[in-house]
Design a protein around this nucleic acid. Structure first.
Length: 682
RNA sequence: GCGCCCAUAGCUCAGCUGGAUAGAGCGUCAGACUACGAAUCUGCAGGCCGGGGGUUCGAAUCCCUCUGGGCGCACCA
């Protein structure tokens, strides 16, 4: 928070204290301060109608007048920060000393640089973010992209605000879908094992498509897949452990999965395929291999996008304990039998919460109960966020309600004290961060779009643009995690320009998903994603590289003008950039400068960065950061267009150099929170 | 049928924890490159904030209702 706002908060606080004797919490007082819509209303407003909540009586206008009297009488307390007070209807408007405001705000940015806007918690709360969570038996499509980018951005935001974040990828490695894939693999004889070795995901995708088509016509295949899954489950569950004891030991560093499969040791060829398919142990190995290959593929794409996880978990790991939890709930009377299945009666949710099928096998819901408890035991958390599409709202509302029941009626669980402890602890800490669907997403041929193809389309478009500019390119470093060998295909042979194109493509795709509020369904439109103008990722990236370009240009030009001066500026800028400490009183702007108003607006935008980050956190809404970044970029681009710096005198340029550096710092921080790659040049 | 979500400019969306004249981008049209990078900027036009009712000094924002769309609703995940 900026010192001007803070001063005003304290000022209002003392006014209230004088009036009602009890005072007001600073957090509450902050709500009284508003940012007026236009600059003719001043810079900060105190909305008098809010004061009625704190014991002041009368019409808003009268209260405002009362506060105005107080403010004028005690103006001495704030005269260092504010130059004028006006009353307008129910508002008391405060006008800041703009020169001081700019100085303080820009200085604050430069001092903190990469940490500008960062929060700190004395005791960082552990927040688990469960996101992306692709299914190994299904291709990774754009639906997962939304969860992935929203989740990653939230992780960044929480971390930035001082939380202890744990990112978990909960793989869908369980279910009949897995059985189908095994059925397909064993059924089709035309698998190209050369291709399988080189590009396993493509082959798996074809198997997926083929079997799903065939199952439509031949129901016996569905049965076969179910059988294969049942055998798989038996293999996964073969080392059954007792939940209570397991939970107790978790804190001692026991491995949650307990089983580490060695993917690389499995080699399946056209010759030995039949042997694997014959036995359930062999089928288990096929599944393991698919799982391993899928994870490798996911990791490659994640890394490319600058996304990483702390933990990879699989549903199969929770399945082990699902039946036992069902048993515990049933015996304790919290769950009852209904139409042959087991359900948990819930107050708020009408649809029965089914935790076990009539054949006794576990369900998604029961496995999620296990997972939340296991994670509490293993990692502990003050909050756990599931970033999953809104179509699963019912599921999560059932899950959360079940935990409320487990806590309310914990006496019923006293036979299982450890389970009871962790389950009670989890209650009320689970959050579903849902998002709308992407409607109409398909390739131009009408198929499902792979994430990689999606990025590739955007990259190709960026390539065209870069060629038009000719000669201007990034520094040639590919994005972190890029490995030409892994990709090994056409456009992924990077030179500097291509590396830039890839970053731009990723920026376009990611920002397209983060710029709107989560809840709204988005109508997918290729023209929207492939537009790089206006409210887009490339616009933001362009702004940063334009600043870079301008800064180096200024250093060069000024150096040529007067001997030595270029050096001074260079050191000032470099010092600010590298160490963030060289800001000092050399810097000043004057109200008489023609660009003063625009600079003030930019400084004003700096001052609200942290507020917006906190709002994004409170609402779990990355799009708030997106809007912020667009606004800042827009303010800068307007400034850039209207005021030429080259050719101005030394002092003038020097002050602007600080401001440019500050814009770059704040924009960079915002883009990092959004997982938008930054380019030196583009 | 029940539940959740959504409805703001031609299109895509901000604004929604009630507050001052409802804002951007795209598109249309008219402008700005001998110029710090035109992936930019300036301007024009475009709105009974889906309809109706209510609460309030004050409603795009909260409540009710209707309409239109999305999603979900017992053994899939």
């Amino acid at each position: 928070m900026d010192i001007f706002k803070n001063t005003l908060i304290l000022f209002v606080t003392s006014f209230i204290k004088e009036k009602n004797k009890t005072g007001i919490e600073p957090k509450e007082a902050e709500k009284l301060i508003k940012l007026p819509p236009g600059n003719s209303y001043g810079d900060y407003s105190v909305a008098s109608y809010y004061l009625t909540k704190y014991g002041l009586k009368g019409k808003p206008g009268d209260i405002a007048a009362e506060f105005l009297n107080y403010a004028q009488a005690n103006f001495g307390q704030i005269k260092d920060f504010f130059r004028k007070i006006e009353i307008k209807g129910p508002y008391v408007n405060f006008f800041v000393h703009k020169e001081k405001f700019i100085l303080a705000t820009v200085g604050n940015v430069l001092k903190n640089n990469r940490n500008y806007g960062r929060g700190h918690l004395d005791k960082p709360e552990r927040v688990i973010i469960d996101f992306s969570s692709p299914n190994i038996a299904k291709p990774f499509g754009v639906g997962h992209l939304r969860s992935t980018v929203i989740g990653m951005s939230l992780a960044n935001i929480y971390e930035f605000c001082g939380y202890d974040v744990l990112k978990i990828n909960y793989l869908g490695d369980f279910g009949v879908g897995a059985g189908k894939l095994i059925t397909a693999f064993c059924r089709y004889d035309d698998i190209d094992f050369h291709e399988f070795e080189k590009d396993p995901i493509k082959v798996l995708y074809r198997l997926y498509v083929q079997i799903h088509k065939e199952v439509q016509e031949d129901k016996s295949l569905e049965e076969d897949a179910r059988l294969k899954f049942k055998r798989l489950e038996e293999n996964i569950l073969r080392t059954k452990r007792m939940l209570e004891k397991y939970l107790e030991n978790l804190r001692d560093g026991a491995n949650a999965s307990g089983k580490e499969d060695n993917w690389n040791a499995i080699k399946i060829t056209a010759e030995n395929k039949g042997d694997f398919c014959k036995t359930s142990a062999g089928q288990y190995k096929i599944w393991s291999l698919f799982k391993g290959l899928s994870i490798e593929e996911f990791k490659r794409i994640y890394k490319l996008m600058g996304i990483g996880f702390d933990v990879y978990e699989g549903e199969s790991q929770s399945a082990e304990f699902a039946n036992e939890v069902v048993e515990i709930l049933y015996k304790s009377g919290l769950a009852i039998e209904s139409e042959g299945a087991i359900i948990v009666p819930l107050k708020g949710v009408k649809t029965p919460a089914l935790i076990a099928k009539s054949d006794g096998t576990s369900l998604y819901l029961s496995r999620d109960i296990v997972t939340a408890v296991l994670r509490m035991a293993k990692y502990g958390y003050g909050k756990m966020i599931y970033v999953v599409g809104s179509e699963q709202s019912l599921h999560f509302s059932q899950l959360f309600n079940i935990f409320d029941v487990l806590k309310e009626r914990k006496n019923a669980l006293k036979g299982n004290p450890v389970f009871q402890k962790y389950a009670s602890s989890a209650a009320g800490k689970l959050v579903h961060v849902k998002f709308g669907r992407i409607i109409g997403m398909s390739t131009r041929k009408g198929n499902l779009v792979f994430l990689e193809d999606y990025i590739r389309e955007a990259m190709l478009k960026a390539m065209e643009k870069l060629k038009e500019r000719d000669g201007i390119s990034d520094d040639g470093h590919p994005p972190e995690g890029f490995d030409e060998k892994d990709c090994g295909k056409d456009i992924f042979t990077l030179n500097g320009r291509e590396s830039a194109a890839l970053k731009i493509g990723i920026g376009a795709v990611v920002f397209n998903d983060l710029k709107t509020r989560r809840d709204t369904d988005v109508n997918f439109n290729w023209d929207n994603v492939l537009s790089f103008e206006g409210q887009t990722g490339p616009y933001l990236q362009y702004t940063v590289s334009r600043i870079n370009s301008l800064i180096s240009r200024l250093i060069k030009e000024t150096g040529n003008g007067a001997a030595g001066t270029g050096n001074i500026i260079f050191h000032a800028a470099a010092g600010v950039k590298e160490a963030g400490v060289s800001f000092d009183d050399e810097f000043s702007v004057s109200e008489r400068d023609k660009d003063f108003d625009e600079i003030y607006l930019i400084a004003k935008q700096f001052s609200i960065f942290k507020d917006d980050v906190e709002e994004a956190l409170n609402f779990n809404e990355p799009s708030i950061i997106s809007s912020y970044a667009l606004e800042l970029a827009s303010l800068f681009n307007k400034y850039y267009q209207n005021y030429r710096l080259i050719g101005q005198d030394f002092e003038y340029i020097k002050a602007r150099l600080y401001i440019l550096t500050a814009v770059r710092a704040v924009l960079t921080n915002a883009l990092k929170l959004l997982c938008i790659p930054i380019l030196e040049r583009m």
